[in-house]
């Protein structure tokens, strides 16, 4: 790597900035390598970046300690795993004072994989829901989501085709 010496001469402590941390180019290169394959060994990553495995180990440990790397996980292909196939994006319009509570209750539910709060014309919660079929999706929204205090309206879009699903680029 061209700037290898420069990387190594840098202090590897991650500096706090606005509650976050500062990553240098080497940290980012390691993160990219892990995003491609998190099962790679320190040696393999070191080999691809032309660095000693101990350097990789130190960098990864520091990023784990600072919460930059939250966890190592897998991406499952639901169809091949025979899992719930239907995914829907649900927009829940709520009364402002109940919004936080509705979001928390949705986040607690195992069939809800992502929950976001959004402020456009009205305060709404956007959540990604998985279900076995349209009937079970409707039953969940009708029996669990609609009765939550503060829910005003719900719009649901069933996802029919996935064009891209990647981690955030670093």
């Amino acid at each position: 790597m061209k700037n290898l010496k420069a990387f190594l001469s840098q202090a590897i402590d991650l500096k706090a900035k606005d509650g976050g941390v500062v990553l240098d180019d080497l940290d980012k290169a390691i993160l990219r390598a892990l995003q491609k394959n998190a099962r790679q060994s320190y040696t393999e990553i070191g080999r691809s970046l032309n660095l000693a495995h101990s350097t990789i180990y130190d960098r990864i440990k520091k990023m784990e300690n600072h919460g930059v790397i939250r966890r190592y996980t897998i991406m499952v292909e639901p169809k091949k795993a025979g899992l719930k196939l239907l995914t829907a994006v649900m927009t829940v319009v709520t009364e402002p004072k109940e919004s936080e509570r509705v979001a928390e209750q949705l986040a607690d539910h195992p069939d809800v994989s992502e929950v976001y709060t959004s402020l456009s014309e009205e305060l709404s919660i956007i959540a990604k829901v998985v279900a076995e079929d349209q009937e079970s999706l409707h039953a969940f929204i009708s029996n669990v989501v609609a009765p939550l205090p503060g829910v005003l309206r719900i719009r649901t879009a069933i996802i029919t085709r996935k064009h891209k699903e990647e981690n955030m680029s670093i």
Partner: peptide, 19 residues
């Protein structure tokens, strides 16, 4: 109770806000 009320939808997953 709220849990047993009837919630009006216009299609699958689209709650109209009336119960």
């Amino acid at each position: 109770s709220r849990e047993k009320a009837f919630y009006f939808f216009t299609s699958i997953g689209n709650y109209a806000g009336e119960s």
